[in-house]
């Protein structure tokens, strides 16, 4: 991942930042949808939580360098992230 997008993107960290900005915009959109009415609100709330989960995954994997960490640390982080995400979705949308 070097020297593309007119040479401005240098590595995976730049790509991760762009993805995180796009995910923040998506989360904002989910948030607006969650203020509505009907069954779509539950979907939007789940969307808010799952988008946050994705963003935390990107920060952990790329910025925190878990991608090069030992397997046990990767699994521990993934277990926490999936566990808290599932708990939040069940409580909020259940």
């Amino acid at each position: 991942m070097t020297r593309d997008l007119r040479g401005r993107i240098h590595d995976a960290n730049d790509v991760a930042w762009l993805v995180l900005m796009a995910a923040t915009a998506l989360a904002w959109w989910w948030g607006r949808a969650a203020q509505g009415r009907g069954d779509a609100v539950r979907i939007a709330m789940a969307g808010v939580v799952l988008t946050a989960t994705f963003k935390v995954g990107v920060v952990g994997y790329q910025f925190m360098e878990l991608k090069t960490a030992p397997r046990w640390l990767q699994l521990a982080f993934a277990a926490w992230l999936l566990g808290i995400s599932a708990a939040l979705v069940v409580i909020i949308c259940g």
Partner: peptide, 18 residues
């Protein structure tokens, strides 16, 4: 610093967006 960052991601989602 990254820990501080991703704790905020969940706080932002739960307090501002739901």
């Amino acid at each position: 610093w990254h820990l501080v960052d991703f704790l905020w991601i969940f706080l932002f989602a739960l307090l501002y967006l739901l």
